[in-house]
Amino acid sequence: MLHVENLQVKYGAIAALKGISISIERGKIVTLLGTNGAGKTTTLRTISGLVKASGGCVRFEGKDITNHPCHEIVALGIAQSPEGRMIFSNLTVKENLEMGAYLRKDKMEIQKDMDFAFSIFPRLKERLKQPGGTLSGGEQQMLAISRALMTRPRLLMLDEPSLGIAPILVKTIFEKVVEINRELGMTILLVEQNAHLALQIAHFAYVIETGHLAIQGNAADIARNEDVRRAYLGET
């Protein structure tokens, strides 16, 4: 469904991605692991068009989308829930969700998707009229994921959904990610620092190190990999 080939990104003179290649199969949860600054977020941002690639290409459902404007990539069916959530604090929860459906005109389907979001995150429904900025970190994460779903994507990219969230909520959010994958058959690209949790729910995993692809494989195999255990799962 998504093929990233030899993707390169430069921030000025610094090479952030030095040739990353990943493939994502329809209906799967794929996780992208790595330490801080390895290039996980840059990879997502380049796929979604927020960052321009200096080399390589991104193909989505057979179409070359490399360096297309962000809003066109959203229209093609790729949604990103960004790192740090980026909720519109000045907009109500409802307006945030409506912005997710900005490109859509199918009122009935929009309502259906909103109801689905409420079914997995009932708390959002209670907070519908509240400004996004008044939500807790966990609630904002729920809103960010729901807002991305409102674009009705075929590929959902989640950037660090566990970042800055109460540990008790992290587990809930990961359960919901699995639910979204199962219920909607949603293909998910998950970037996570919490490798432990990510490997539990993912089918396939890529590990990147300073802009290079280091290891790839089935999530279960990766979880058993000695090097990965030592480097990312905090085991000695």
């Binding site: 960004p82 519109f88 997710g100 900005y102």
Partner: peptide, 22 residues
């Protein structure tokens, strides 16, 4: 919708782009 998009853009342009807002 366009007015709400305006408020969204004034808050965070990148997040607004990710909603498909031109």
């Amino acid at each position: 919708k366009l007015g709400t998009a305006m408020r969204a853009v004034s808050f965070n342009q990148q997040a607004a782009s990710l909603m498909g807002i031109n």
